[in-house]
C-alpha cells in the first residue's frame, strides 16, 4: 500500500514522490490534498496532490522539508511505503472557462498551484504563471508549467533567474498591461496576502489556497479553521481554496505560529546545525 515508485529531487530540500495509490489517483481533482503520516506516533500532515495518473494508478506529491515530518518524509525512497495516507481531501478548485487566469506560486506553493494550472488550461483558459523562489536552484516546476501555460514569468529574491524581485512586483506590472479574469495564489501566507492586495484595486476574482495547520483533515477537530468574510470555515472541508479578498491572513499567519517553539525543538533534534536555516527558508519565499 502507498509504495513509492519514483522520487526526484527538484530543489534543495524539495523532493517529488510518485506513489502507488490507484483509488486516490482515480478520484483526485485539482486542488485536493492527502493527509500523510510517515512514522508511528508521527504527525498527520496535509500535502497537495500535484499530479494524478489514473491509468498508472499513481499520485505525485512535492514535499519541502521544513520540519520533522517533512524531513522524515524526504528521507524515504523508491520501494518505501507511506505509513498512512488518506485522501483525496478538500473541496476541488473551481475550474471553468474564465478567460485569462494568472497563477501565482511562491516556493513550494508552485507545486500546490500546478494541478490547478493544468486543469484550468485544459478547460480552455489562457493561463499565465508567475512563480518565485529565493534563488534559481530553489525554483520549482518551471518546465512543467511552461508545457501548460501561455507564459511563465519567473522572479527570484537574488536575481539569479528571471526578475530580481517578488512575484507580486511581477503581478502588479502584469495587471497594468493585461486584462486578467482570475488570479490564483499559493505560497507563504504573506505572499498570498500581498497578492490579494495587488488584485483588490482591480476587483479581479482572486483565490488563495490556504495552508493552516491540520490534524485529521476530515472536519473533526476544527483546528484548521480560518476566517473568511468574518465567518469561520474549516479549510479541510470547505477549502483549502477561498476568496483571497475575504480571508483574514493576519489570523492565519498567527495561527500557523502556534507551535513555533515545539517545531524549532524538533528541528534541532533532527539536525542541530541546519535547523535555523530551514525555518527561514520556508518563511521567506514570497
Amino acid at each position: 500500500m502507498n509504495t513509492i515508485v519514483e522520487t526526484r529531487t527538484l530543489a534543495p530540500a524539495v523532493k517529488l514522490f510518485r506513489i502507488d495509490a490507484p483509488k486516490v489517483a482515480r478520484k483526485q481533482r485539482a486542488g485536493q490534498f492527502v493527509i500523510v503520516r510517515v512514522a508511528p506516533d508521527g504527525e498527520r500532515i496535509p500535502l497537495t496532490i500535484a499530479e494524478a495518473d489514473s491509468d498508472a494508478g499513481t499520485i505525485t506529491l512535492v514535499v519541502q522539508a521544513v520540519g520533522k515530518t517533512t524531513t522524515l518524509m524526504n528521507a524515504l525512497d523508491v520501494g518505501d511505503e507511506i505509513l498512512d495516507m488518506a485522501g483525496p481531501l478538500g473541496t476541488p478548485s473551481e475550474v471553468a472557462e474564465f478567460g485569462t487566469v494568472v497563477v501565482v506560486g511562491g516556493g513550494v506553493g508552485t507545486a500546490v498551484s500546478y494541478p490547478t494550472a493544468v486543469a484550468l488550461s485544459e478547460a480552455g483558459n489562457s493561463v499565465l504563471a508567475v512563480i518565485g523562489a529565493r534563488s534559481r536552484p530553489n525554483l520549482l516546476l518551471e518546465e512543467e508549467l511552461s508545457a501548460v501555460c501561455a507564459e511563465v514569468r519567473v522572479c527570484t529574491d537574488d536575481g539569479s533567474h528571471g526578475r530580481h524581485g517578488l512575484v507580486t512586483d511581477e503581478l502588479a506590472d502584469l495587471l497594468e498591461t493585461r486584462s486578467v479574469d482570475r488570479v490564483l495564489a499559493a505560497g507563504p501566507v504573506v505572499m498570498m496576502q500581498a497578492v490579494a492586495e495587488t488584485t483588490r484595486p482591480y476587483d479581479i476574482p482572486t483565490v488563495a489556497s490556504l495552508n493552516p495547520i491540520m490534524v485529521d483533515g476530515t472536519g473533526m477537530c476544527g483546528g484548521c479553521r480560518v476566517s473568511v468574510g468574518g465567518t469561520n470555515r474549516f479549510a479541510c472541508l470547505d477549502g483549502p481554496d477561498f476568496d483571497a479578498h475575504l480571508v483574514d491572513f493576519t489570523l492565519l499567519e498567527q495561527r500557523n505560529r502556534a507551535y513555533l517553539d515545539w517545531e524549532a525543538k524538533q528541528r534541532a533534534d533532527l539536525h542541530p546545525c541546519a535547523a535555523a536555516d530551514q525555518a527561514v527558508d520556508f518563511e521567506a519565499t514570497p
Binding site: 490534524v215 476544527g222 469561520n232 502556534a258
Partner: peptide
C-alpha cells in the same frame, strides 16, 4: 476571540 492560539475544540 475564538480563533486565538490556545483555544481548542474538545475534539482537537
Amino acid at each position: 476571540g475564538e480563533n486565538f492560539i490556545g483555544v481548542y475544540s474538545a475534539s482537537e
